[in-house]
């Protein structure tokens, strides 16, 4: 079966990408100076007696060759032992679990906000009856792209936490605490999605099927939501994968501003301190998420447009190409 082969090939590629990223990062970290143990050994603040230094290296098995260390680390990884942070001494599994459980809620909420915001901006830009409102909405994506997220975050904190006191700036109050950071992420990230959505809607609206529907007497609301939006939104699906990536990247900054300790924070801290065991797991995790999202996007296309499989066309090309083909079918 072509479909099964296609899926199998894509999954194999995804696994290969994650494995390669892991290997590259592992050996790059070897070349870079400055992991916490090395810093401890070279710090002029605490010169260690040579015996203690040796014991320390042996404890972390840093006295072995890079290849041996790689084998040990990978062996442990497959047995489920993710090791311990070199900085905080916490099990990496614990740090990651704490980070993921936090960031997953944040990212999910931010994703929904982003979709809602982009839809609102795109629909207003394309369909609002007043030119002034349309123009104002059309400028929002550019503003979103060019405004740094920490600024948005600090603005929201100032208004809703410091001035109005509606939500704590430092304490975890359950789901409510996610609203401001999620809104910050959505405001910062929606730009590209909104822009692509606007283009899609504009293009779909100009197509002949709209005239046909209108001639059939279909209402404007139905045309906009059921037909134009459905056709015009397809290119945005490619962008959704990018949005997820941006949400994860944006979490690094937003979690710092909102004193959240999610995956973004874990990433920031581990990279800053060159905390190798933590970085390695973060790398696996983030690259897996990214690859899986891309995989899902690619696999989603055939269900939306079966010709991608039939014609053996490679998904993920220029988004503009697909609605044009779609137009022939619809019209």
């Amino acid at each position: 079966m072509a479909a099964r082969q296609y899926v199998a090939r894509r999954i194999a590629q995804a696994i290969l990408v994650v494995a390669l990223v892991y290997i590259i990062v592992f050996f790059t970290l070897f070349v870079l100076p400055g992991d916490p143990i090395e810093n401890k050994l070279t710090s002029p603040l605490n010169p260690l007696p040579p015996a203690s230094a040796e014991a320390l290296l042996a404890y972390y098995q840093l006295d072995k060759s890079p290849i041996e260390q790689f084998a040990i680390t990978v062996g442990r990884l497959f047995s489920g032992d993710l090791g311990y942070s070199l900085v905080s001494g916490r099990p990496v599994s614990e740090l990651i679990a704490q980070g993921v459980s936090d960031t997953i809620v944040l990212a999910a909420m931010a994703f929904v906000f982003t979709l809602a915001l982009s839809l609102a901006i795109a629909l207003t830009t394309v369909f609002a009856p007043w030119a002034a409102l349309r123009n104002a909405a059309a400028s929002l994506p550019i503003i979103s792209i060019s405004t740094p997220s920490f600024l948005i975050g600090f603005l929201l904190l100032t208004i809703f936490s410091f001035q109005l006191g509606w939500v704590s700036s430092i304490r975890d109050q359950g789901l409510v605490s996610y609203i401001l950071p999620a809104a910050t992420l959505a405001i910062a990230v929606n730009g590209v999605l909104s822009e692509v959505l606007i283009q899609g809607l504009r293009r779909a609206r100009a197509e002949p099927f709209v005239t046909v529907l209108r001639a059939k007497g279909t209402g404007e609301g139905t045309i906009a939501i059921r037909h134009i939006l459905r056709n015009g939104a397809i290119p945005s699906i490619t962008v959704l994968a990018l949005v997820v990536g941006e949400l994860l990247a944006g979490a690094v900054v937003v979690e710092t501003v909102f004193s959240r300790r999610g995956l973004g924070f874990v990433t920031y801290e581990s990279v800053r301190d060159q905390d190798t065991p933590v970085i390695l797991i973060v790398v696996i995790l983030v690259s897996t998420v990214y690859v899986v999202i891309n995989l899902i996007t690619d696999l989603l296309y055939p269900t939306l447009d079966p010709r991608i499989l039939r014609h053996g066309a490679k998904p993920g090309g220029a988004p503009a190409a697909r609605p044009t083909r779609r137009q022939k079918v619809t019209a």
């Binding site: 920490f150 600090f154 904190l157 100032t158 936490s161 410091f162 001035q163 006191g165 700036s169 430092i170 710092t256 501003v257 909102f258 004193s259």
Partner: peptide, 13 residues
């Protein structure tokens, strides 16, 4: 609280 401005804002609030 790592951000200087957030720490200060939280004190003032």
């Amino acid at each position: 609280v790592l951000e200087d401005s957030v720490r200060l804002g939280t004190l003032k609030s």
